[in-house]
Amino acid sequence: MEWFIAKIFAKYNYWISIILMMIGFYGIVAKDNLIKKIIGLNIFQTAIFLYFISLGAVKAGTAPIVDAEIIRKGYVYANPLPHVLILTAIVVSVATTAVALSLVIRMHQEYGTIEESEIIEKSRDKGMTWT
């Protein structure tokens, strides 16, 4: 039990992000619907963001706003760097999602479907193969 607590509960933030990542990965691999794939991708990315943010968290820390009072009173504050990084990463992820969605819209216009298998079926005659 000791072991269980030390390995699982104490590091629950990592476990949650791993579980989320696997859920996202499953979505990407197993779903035929392109929108669902994108959702899977988003979950996958969010899991990583969660991991980063939890790295920066400090027990009982405040927001990392540099102020004379905070320094004087010796408050602990969360590490700001992961937050900054993840802000950038979120932008990247939003951009990726935007491109992906626009691709899906265009595909819907071309093929009239957003199911991957049907799209492959329809474009097979043009030299797209599985190899």
């Binding site: 899906v104 595909m107 799209i119």
Partner: peptide, 10 residues
């Protein structure tokens, strides 16, 4: 280029 390229790109 549209068409198949969309799928490839995705």
């Amino acid at each position: 280029r549209g068409k198949i390229a969309l799928k490839a790109s995705f």
